[in-house]
Design a protein around this nucleic acid. Sequence first.
DNA 1: ACTCCTCCTTGAACAGTGTTTAATATTCTT
DNA 2: AAGAATATTAAACACTGTTCAAGGAGGAGT
Lengths: 242, 242
Amino acid sequence: MPSSESSGGSVWLRPERPPRDRQLTRERIVEVAVAVLDAEGHRGLSMRRVATELGVTAGSLYWYVHTKDDLLELALDRVLGEVRAGPGTSGWRDGLAALARSNRAMLLRHRWALSELTVRPNLGPNALALAETGLRLLESAGFAGTDLDAALAAVNDHVVGAVIAEVAWRDTLARMSGTGSGWAEQAADYLRQVAERHPTLAGRMAATGEIDVERESERRFTFGLDCLLDGLATRCATPSPS
Amino acid sequence: MPSSESSGGSVWLRPERPPRDRQLTRERIVEVAVAVLDAEGHRGLSMRRVATELGVTAGSLYWYVHTKDDLLELALDRVLGEVRAGPGTSGWRDGLAALARSNRAMLLRHRWALSELTVRPNLGPNALALAETGLRLLESAGFAGTDLDAALAAVNDHVVGAVIAEVAWRDTLARMSGTGSGWAEQAADYLRQVAERHPTLAGRMAATGEIDVERESERRFTFGLDCLLDGLATRCATPSPS
DNA sequence: ACTCCTCCTTGAACAGTGTTTAATATTCTT
DNA sequence: AAGAATATTAAACACTGTTCAAGGAGGAGT
């Protein structure tokens, strides 16, 4: 019988067994899982892989973790714990921006976490702590009630959306440069059609061709974030940094 | 040998075979795939499932589609084709808002599409057409250069991020109500700890408990969107609806 | 020291996955 | 009608997550 009875609900409702002997721990398992995910990507994670990495059979893991989904939920919350609010930030606006940046940095470090976010409701302790600090910042700005929720959600949404777009962009470039010969002709055909049908898009693509993805993604992120914070500032009681 | 040589690149570079006989088509396959995805979710899609749904063996599909990933790429672009710019919209701001709303509606209709967006660069014809209309709207607002890209990205990011959050919320509620007895006690314990450590979050959760998810999600979405559009309006040459 | 009992780990199995490949129909071309 | 090209099948391969009976191992009780 695995780590607790009553199989429904979230992992967080099923506490870990008290220790005795153990060469294994949830801690260690999650740690290895994150390492594998970072190294091999979302597809590279399998129970057997984590098990062999720990010198153990696949079945053993199920003593500590109900299912692979639970493991992923734990892994997700673990990396969410890496997000920190900057230390000496003055005012809600800077604080929120710092939090958003830290969040973005984490998502770029662990790109698999994005796909998890879309599939899995996320109620781990680190996720909740993160929500709390965000809420406090916005509260200090004068937001309250449902506007508080909406404001925090808007910032988080921008972070998630921006990283998704950035990762997709990078992957596209990586894929295009990673293909063998004979690719150029087909691509050229396709691109010509695109250019005919979508002139302004073609213009932007041409201009974006030689740009540093890293810097440009950063720029877009701050652009959107600034827009958002401007919009928020006009809607709260404390428009200036307090 | 499947639908074309030269295995690299995107599906879009590998045109469909010219027809002859065919009980199968890319069209039909993608159509069924979307139907299965809508009905059974991301996990429910398998080559064999699509095949039997078409009265055919799994192997046959590989004559029309290189891999399952290709099929998903096609399915994603197909649903992206459902997004429409509202017809009689006046000014860039309303147009962009209408586009964002249509986009959101589509993502809520096909929730699996979200997870695909995070994993798959997306260069299908419908995706490109969508980008084009967005760019045109923002161009008419006076945006140009990299600001144009950044502005469009910001709007799209908000849509994607907001739907992710909404779906996660709904799934959480669905999961919580779907669990058997014995769940309440553990959840109560966990929630008590959360409330102690995170007072303002606890306050919001209490207030959110009895709220209609549908309406509140809608509200948050428009809140964030308005913030964003306000921010954009102050940054472009055509602040008033043109 | 012996048993008992609970905790942990194993190894094998099950059903299902994506994908390949040789063999086979089926249809078009000559 | 012969042959080539196209389309489909059935079977196999190497995987996957998950379950489960079986067994080893340490602590508690007597």
